[in-house]
Design a protein around this nucleic acid. Structure first.
Lengths: 144, 144
DNA sequence: AGGATAGGTTTCCATTGGAAACTAGCTTCC
DNA sequence: GGAAGCTAGTTTCCAATGGAAACCTATCCT
């Protein structure tokens, strides 16, 4: 079990040894920015963060809204986003217990960017579909 | 081999049957927007698209700039982004052959959003690191 | 007691990701 | 003339991840 919070495939020098004089650089392999980029540049994380923009949402509500997400992946993604300080988890001792997820102030600074990604897909879907069709037609039948 | 361009795990009604009266909705499971979101909300795709903002870049140049990406994943990601019409691939018959990747106009409409994601990680890295440390301290030693 | 609801965890298997080796055309070095 | 090196990939192999479905714990309702 790897509950200690550090991925076991990272070469030991993950977050600490990279705090060098230069500003953080996503293009560097071992830089912590990479871990964060890997977290937020993720289909499910994007949808979750976007969904939380209008206020706190409960676990099962998220699960129903974000169609197709599995409970496992939802809970995993929420846990990671919480650990990164992007969202907060509030347990209410109702019955049955209620758990609300909400954006933190830090999370709020990200949601515009994330929402832009999510909704770009909606706005430009037809263009992408057309491009795919064109590409497939070319790849399927054209010699040179 | 699944070179026909359609993922074999998709339930047949992938891109075509979803063009309904309602606008595309990323929250719907079988909607093509999901495929696109899956493509662009991806660590490597984000880095590639961001890297192409300043103009065309060659394959090996991308590989060296985006530290840690493997050739396989780079070529796969480039191929998918090309199919989606986000970038173009230009082969120059130099010697050795040169291949340049560049953003298409459609790709350009995405890069601001994508760059915002990539650089949010750089700007907010310290806050994320602090949040992780706090979370781990709590999870490691606090009873309830 | 049996079923529903809330919020997960566990199990299992297919898909994906990454490291490294290999391909292939052409050039320069020795 | 053959080895090495550049280009841009593909292939192979294995570990890690993702998703579907089952299971779990707790409390209320009937």
């Amino acid at each position: 079990m790897v509950t200690s919070g550090k991925p076991q495939n990272a070469p030991e020098r993950d977050a600490e040894s990279c705090r060098l004089p230069w500003p953080f650089d996503v293009y560097e392999a071992q830089c912590p920015t990479r871990m964060v980029l890997d977290r937020i540049a993720d289909k499910w994380a994007v949808l979750i963060l976007d969904r939380l923009r209008d206020g706190p949402v409960r676990f099962n509500h998220l699960r129903r809204d974000i169609k197709g997400i599995s409970q496992k992946v939802l809970s995993q993604t929420l846990k990671k986003l919480e650990r990164d300080g992007l969202l907060s988890r509030a347990v209410f001792p109702t019955v049955p217990v209620t758990v609300e997820y909400a954006l933190t102030p830090l999370g709020r600074t990200l949601t515009d960017a994330v929402a832009a990604i999510a909704h770009w897909a909606e706005r430009n879907m037809e263009a992408v579909l057309a491009a795919q069709a064109a590409y497939d037609a070319r790849a399927g039948g054209e010699p040179g």
